[in-house]
């Protein structure tokens, strides 16, 4: 939850190439979750809200892999059925965040001075709000829902990316090949299109992967606080929220959804890092 903004600004570069197993594992998990999102019925033995009062609060067993909740609903099936919503919220938030970031970042780096300064200051102001507070403000205005969650997380995380985009564009603008192109008399639009944007935006592919994982963690956090999707929705954060009341009797209700969130966040990070590594290698050669 903490590792959001700087991880994309100052993404630590760890040597990754020698240990691809973590990459394979991550891709495997994501593939599984992709199936769960698209065709949950292939993987889930029960419906997401199928109540069975006769088997309430049962611990994990072969019949109920992750145990059951207070209404006898199968937790494993609920986690599987909750995948699509959790992933969609995460991907949507990452998308909103990046679109906002590119627009704001580009405006700050490329537009004429008063506009640039204004945008720059605005980003700075937004950045001064911890992301959770921005999200809370937005939720207070619109009320909690999946859409609010997407925009709240997207808006909350955008300023950090915007600063990064601005930095990338400025770096590209001041680089040798742009100077060369300018000297050659290429038009502003052509330079922007052919040189600045491709170079500035390429790292965003990796950032997008990284931020999906983080967005899911954030969005689930909002649901957990009761400010997002609410129970009985099987969205993962909502599952955690619902399980809280039974933590001493049925700790599995908290354990499994949490593990899935952490595993997904790790996978997204791992894939993002590898992408980042390959993209940079590609740029150097």
């Amino acid at each position: 939850m903490t590792a959001l903004r700087p991880s994309v600004i100052d993404a630590p570069r760890v040597a990754l190439t020698k240990r691809p197993w973590s990459l394979y594992l991550s891709i495997g998990l994501l593939a599984f979750l992709a199936v769960a999102a698209v065709a949950p019925n292939l993987l889930a033995p029960y419906g997401p809200t199928a109540i069975d009062y006769d088997s309430a609060l049962q611990p994990p067993s072969f019949l109920h892999l992750f145990g059951t909740d207070e209404s006898g609903r199968d937790l494993y099936s609920r986690v599987i059925h909750g995948t699509s919503q959790s992933l969609l919220i995460g991907i949507g938030a990452a998308f909103v965040s990046l679109v906002l970031a590119v627009i704001l970042g580009a405006l700050a780096a490329l537009s004429v001075k008063p506009v640039a300064i204004l945008v720059d200051r605005s980003v700075e102001i937004l950045f001064a709000f911890p992301a959770l507070l921005l999200a809370l403000l937005l939720i207070a205005i619109t009320g909690p829902s999946a859409w609010t969650q997407v925009f709240a997380v997207g808006l909350g995380t955008a300023p950090g990316y915007a600063r990064m985009v601005r930095g990338q564009i400025l770096a590209a603008k001041n680089s040798g090949y742009v100077e060369a192109a300018t000297a050659l008399g290429h038009s502003r639009g052509r330079i922007l299109h052919e040189h600045i944007l491709p170079n500035a935006l390429r790292p965003l592919v990796a950032v997008f992967a990284l931020s999906i994982g983080q967005s899911i963690v954030w969005a689930s956090g909002l649901s957990f606080l009761g400010l997002g999707v609410a129970p009985p929705s099987p969205e993962w954060g909502a599952l955690l929220d619902a399980g809280r009341a039974y933590v001493t009797q049925a700790s599995w209700l908290l354990l499994f959804p949490g593990l899935v969130i952490v595993a997904l966040a790790l996978s997204a990070t791992s894939i993002g890092r590898h992408l980042q590594f390959y993209l940079e290698k590609g740029r150097r050669t």
Binding site: T2, S220, G221, F224, V247, T248, L254, I261, V262, L266
Partner: peptide
């Protein structure tokens, strides 16, 4: 070392807190 770093960084506070409390 770095596996622990990455894993620790990925732990959401809301979940970690409940597990520690539990």
């Amino acid at each position: 070392g770095s596996l622990v770093d990455v894993t620790a960084a990925a732990l959401p506070a809301y979940w970690l807190g409940i597990i520690l409390l539990l």
